[in-house]
């Protein structure tokens, strides 16, 4: 290019500064969530907002336990045996038992991993068939699979609510896993088809000449080649099930409720206990942040259903 190097350098610097400024602003709410988790309730609602504070695990202890107030005498007779009992003891309370957060988090894990496994398993098979065989009405079928994503979740939730009620699937892990699998399948099929399309056909042809059956060729040649694609598809499915709220709030109430509908309901004495909410949110969000960083190369593909591949 004919342009002189100097303005390019200043332009780069200016662009860099603007982007860094935006990134820092956009990061602020997330940093605020993480830091609020380590504040005391009074620090969390201080004015002006506290940037420097003495960190405490009170929010995390409140998140995982239920507590009751006790008399001075009772507190004196039952000295705390470890650091978190001490923390609660100092407020004149004792731990009454575990809170529901652990259960809800565990439900999120079961439903997330269960539906991810199923949708990636089914998705890989379907994507392979769509990629390698001449399926009649292929484009229509693929579009049909995609169009299931256009429905507002609430619109599908009405009949699914009725269906689950009559099948005894409401508020069960199995019901939620099936539902999330169906929602994730469209993404899984589209993404995986893209990844499998990219594997050269020659490898399979060679394997077939060597006497492999079609199925063996799929298992021993295609699958290993598609590992990266399958892994990133799995992470996308996992993140979707992990974050999903609409179905979870409508179809689960107790035993199979996941964390997203639960976290906003964490309530302390006199209003929302923001440090506990923030602690719950931190534990819930940080894994996704880590996965996002791991996924950064395939991010674009995942969010556009494989339409943009970079």
């Amino acid at each position: 290019m004919s342009s002189i190097t100097e303005p390019r350098q200043t332009w780069k610097l200016a662009a860099g500064l603007l982007v860094v400024f935006y990134a820092l602003v956009t990061l602020l709410p997330l940093l605020w969530i993480i830091s609020t988790g380590f504040k005391t309730p009074s620090d969390s609602i201080a004015y002006p907002p506290k940037i420097l504070f003495e960190p405490t695990f009170e929010g995390y202890v409140n998140l995982f336990t239920t507590q009751t107030r006790q008399s001075e005498e009772f507190l004196a007779n039952n000295p705390p045996t470890n650091w978190y009992e001490q923390l609660v003891h100092d407020k004149g309370m004792v731990i009454a038992g575990p809170s529901r957060y652990g259960e809800r988090f565990f439900n999120s894990l079961i439903i997330g991993f269960g539906s991810t496994f199923l949708s990636v398993f089914l998705g890989t098979l379907a994507a392979y068939a769509f990629s390698r065989y001449r399926v009649p009405l292929k484009d229509d079928l693929l579009f049909f699979i995609l169009s299931t994503r256009m429905m507002p979740p609430i619109a599908v939730a009405i009949p699914i609510f009725l269906m689950f009620r009559s099948l005894g699937l409401s508020d069960t892990h199995a019901g939620m896993i099936l539902l999330y699998t169906a929602v994730n399948l469209s993404l899984a099929v589209w993404l995986l088809k893209g990844f499998i399309d990219e594997i050269p056909l020659e490898y399979e042809e060679a394997a077939l000449i060597d006497g492999y059956t079609r199925f063996q060729a799929f298992r021993k040649v295609v699958l290993p080649q598609a590992t990266t694609g399958i892994a990133s598809t799995a992470i996308f499915c996992l993140i979707f099930s992990w974050n999903e709220y609409a179905f979870a709030v409508l179809l689960t109430s107790g035993s199979a409720q996941t964390a997203p509908p639960f976290i906003p309901t964490i309530i302390g004495v006199g209003g929302q206990d923001w440090p506990a909410v923030a602690a719950g949110a931190t534990l819930f969000l940080v894994p996704v942040m880590v996965f996002t960083i791991l996924l950064r190369k395939h991010l674009l593909r995942g969010i556009t259903f494989g339409a943009v591949r970079k």
């Binding site: 709410p29 997330l30 969530i33 974050n243 964390a259 906003p264 909410v277």
Partner: peptide, 28 residues
Amino acid sequence: SRFRGSNFWTTIIVLPMMLSPAVVGNFW
């Protein structure tokens, strides 16, 4: 413009998009 560190900052900017809208909305 591919300034130095642009990939790193792109990843930072992308973070909010991947998070649970319910949990984040509640915190907002």
